[in-house]
Each structure stands twice: as structure tokens, then as C-alpha cells.
Amino acid sequence: MNNIFDNAPSPFIPNKLPIDISTIIDIDIIDLLSQASMEMGTYSGLLKNTINPMLLISPLLIQETISSSALEGTHATIEDFYNYEAGNKVDIEKDEMTEIGNYRKALYYAIDSISTVNDTSSNGKLPLTSRIIKEMHKILLSNVRGKNKSPGEFKKEQNYIGSKDTISFTPLPPELTDEYMYNLENYIHQDDKKILIQIAFIHAQFEMIHPFKDGNGRIGRLLIPLFLYYKEYLPYPTFYMSKYFEADRALYLQKLSNISKNNEWKEWIKYFLEGIISQSKINTKKAQYLIYLYNTFKEKVLKNINSKYSVQVLDFIFEQPIFKAKQLKNKLGIGTNTTIYNLLNNFMKLGILKKTNDERNATYICVEILENLD
């Protein structure tokens, strides 16, 4: 039987960035770019005018971790992940759940670590560089099945993309990885007015370089919100596209593949901009509802619950809409169980929470948050 590597395509060596877009941009792309910019402007405005948007949008971040991980073959749902964190049994391998949690940790690490392009304060934060990307990768592969695949280090051996029977694409050779990642990093810092086209190039180029032995797809998708935040196009890195890619995974991979096969940048950019338009509308709608829900709940809570902890409990519910009383107690640092259970009972009376029938170790659920994420 032939070794599948015998018939593997030669490594693809893409053009370095920037790409000359004079032959790529047409009236359709200009129209899509205009629509995408308008929709992103609406979403950005919503974030700018919201108090603590990272808290309120945190359920969307979990949805992104689930969708991005699903593109790599995981099967967990949002409810699975929240139940797992609550200590409930789920029919998903522990490795999968840890991978999803690592994705979230990697994004939070980047949020805490990177500055923005015009930030001149000496706050110890860094620009979006390979150093940040490598550390995110290290976090992503921590204590999971990819932990032996050089976490946080660029590849030293050739990697391949395909199935167990066929190799469909051979990325950049390892000896060129540092050179091409340096070029990508320079392009990230390049001043370009067409930010949304720039990130389309960045995402595709990263996937063609495939700089790591494993985890490239997830890191490449994380770069989208982080780049938009770094360039100050968005006030927070809370714009996610994995749901769009996941909706038709075959089309996503086909559009990427056509760049290497046929230099089809034009169709990739159109596809990417269509995704931005679609996800901007969806993200705006979901964010508006989560903000409305939070404000509605907060009004009820302040009117009906006389406790200094009431708003902190509400904030926790948006971070963790499926949880156990012990998690809440540990988060808030409340000493007595009586205080915790009184608060939870009051939240149930207001219709904000429901709980399972297991009285000894009940799970509390905010159904309305979860329904918004479907």
C-alpha cells in the first residue's frame, strides 16, 4: 500500500503580503465593503454605548468557542460547556471540553495583553505580534490532545491538511515559516484604510502558512476579532465569524483552497465580506437582546431584592448562565449558604432563574440567555 505522503502535493508557497489589489477590487467588492463597513459601524456603536459590554457579550464569546471548535471536529453544545463547568456530567470527552475552555482562555489572555495601534501609554501591553500569537497557541494546546505538538512554537517539520486517506494541501515549508510570519506581522501593522479587506488577507495567509503543528484554524479565527480590536476598528474584540464558517464548512475550505489552486483572491474577499455583513447583523441583534435582557433583569432585581450582592449575582449569571450555588458563593466570596440560597430563591421568584429538581446539588439555569444563543 502506498504511503499517502508519496502523493502529497508540493508545499504551497504563497505570495507575500501586501497583495496588489488593483486587479482584485471590482464594483461588487466595493459594494460589499460599503455594506460591511455600515453593518460593522452599527455593531461598534452599540458596543461603545454599552456599559461593560465584555460582560454582556460574554455569552457570544462562548458561542464563538463552540463554533470554532466545531470546525475542528468537536461536538459540544453551549449547554454542554456550561454544564461541564458547573460540574455536571456531559456526554462529551473531557479533552473536547478542555479545548473549548482553552480557546476562551487564549482570547482572554490576548485581550489582557495587547494594546491598540494608537495606544501610547506605558501600560506594559504589547502590539499584536508573533509573540502574542505563540502564547495564545501555548494556552490553546495546554493539557489537551495537542499538548505534544510543540505548543507555542512554530513548526519544525512539514505539516499537511487532509483526511486519513488523502492529503489535499501541503502548507508552507517549515524553513520558511519565520520569514512568512515576519511578513504577516509587518502587514498587520501596515496602515491600510480597507481594514476589512486587510483582515480577509491576514486570515487566509495565516491558514496557508499554517505555522503550527496543530491548532492553526482556531488561532487563525481568533486573529479576526483581535486584529479589528488592535486596529481600533472595534472598541472590544467581540466580533466572531466562526458561526458563518461553520454553517458551510465545505464552502469555507473550498474558498481557502481556491486561493492556492487558482489565486482566487477576489472570490475569497467577496465570501469574507459577505460573512462580515451576515455576522454583523446577527451579532448586533443578539447583543441588543442581551443588553435589553440585562437591563430588564436589573430593573426587576433592584426593585425587588434588597441585597448589596444582587447586581453581582446578575453579572455572574451572564458570565455563567448554568451554574451551581457553590460556584456563585466562591465567585462572590459570601460566607454563608443562607445568603446565597435566599438570593437564588429571589431570582427564581422573579423568573430570572430556574433550577433542576436535584435539591441537594441543584443546577441553576437562565433559560432566556441560552435561548438567545441558539
Rank of each mutant, 00 (worst) to 15 (best):
I188M: 07
I100D: 10
I197N: 07
H189P: 02
D112K: 15
Y103C: 01
V117Y: 09
Y103P: 04
D165S: 11
P174M: 03
K193M: 11
S113W: 03
N102C: 09
I202G: 12
L107E: 00
T170E: 00
S150Q: 07
F154K: 01
K193P: 00
T129N: 07
K194I: 12
S130A: 06
P174R: 05
M136S: 12
L172S: 02
Q198Y: 10
I197F: 12
F169A: 02
I114C: 08
H189F: 05
K194C: 07
T177V: 12
L141E: 00
I139V: 14
I167L: 02
E185R: 07
I114N: 03
I188G: 02
Y160R: 01
Y180I: 09
I195E: 14
L176K: 05
S130Y: 03
Y160S: 10
R145G: 02
L140M: 14
E179T: 15
I199N: 15
L128M: 03
G162W: 14
E153N: 11
Y109W: 03
L128D: 01
I111E: 08
T166N: 06
P151Q: 03
S142V: 00
D178P: 03
F154I: 09
K134A: 03
I132Y: 00
N186P: 03
Q158Y: 13
P171V: 01
I199C: 10
L196V: 15
N123R: 09
P127R: 11
N183R: 12
L128F: 00
Q198E: 15
G152L: 06
I132E: 04
D119H: 02
E179P: 03
R104A: 09
Y103E: 06
Y180V: 01
N183G: 02
E175G: 04
L176N: 04
M136Y: 07
I195C: 14
Y103I: 10
S115W: 12
I202A: 11
P151F: 04
K155R: 14
I132L: 05
D119E: 14
P173D: 02
H137G: 08
I197V: 15
Y187G: 02
A204K: 13
I195L: 15
T166C: 12
E157C: 14
R131G: 11
G152P: 00
K193Y: 13
N159D: 15
K138M: 10
K138L: 14
H203G: 09
K155G: 11
F169Y: 10
D165K: 12
I133Q: 00
I161Q: 04
Q205F: 12
I114S: 02
A106T: 08
M181F: 06
I133T: 02
F154E: 05
S122P: 13
V117R: 13
K147M: 09
I111N: 02
Y108D: 09
I100T: 01
L141D: 00
L140E: 04
T120C: 04
T170N: 01
K134I: 04
